[in-house]
């Protein structure tokens, strides 16, 4: 498996650290309902198909990446810099 880092180019999977679902980018407000925090911390989908998750380019540019990939076909359709995504 290779990921095309927007900065470094195509790199081997072993250069990256997998963190988890994109959900980690959507932290609830401090005063949000407990249900929102429960969802943020614990509840994850387990899709057969498109999924978006966070990877860290540990052995390269040290950027967090948002990867869109397909768990069925293993196709990777997008790799974006978390730092440059639209807020």
């Amino acid at each position: 498996m290779r990921l095309k880092c927007p900065l470094c180019g195509e790199r081997d999977r072993r250069e990256f650290h997998y963190y988890g679902a994109e959900d980690y980018l959507h932290r609830p407000e401090v005063d949000a309902e407990p249900a929102a925090w429960d969802n943020y911390l614990h509840l994850r989908d387990n899709p057969a198909g498109m999924t978006r998750d966070l990877w860290y380019h540990e052995a390269g540019c040290a950027q967090w990446l948002l990867v869109t990939r397909n768990t069925v076909t293993h196709e990777i359709s997008a790799v974006e810099l978390v730092a440059e995504r639209a807020k």
């Binding site: 470094c8 250069e15 052995a59 390269g60 540019c61 040290a62």
Partner: peptide, 10 residues
């Protein structure tokens, strides 16, 4: 220039 691992060294 590249940032890359030399074995396991950054």
């Amino acid at each position: 220039v590249v940032r890359a691992p030399v074995n396991h060294m950054n």
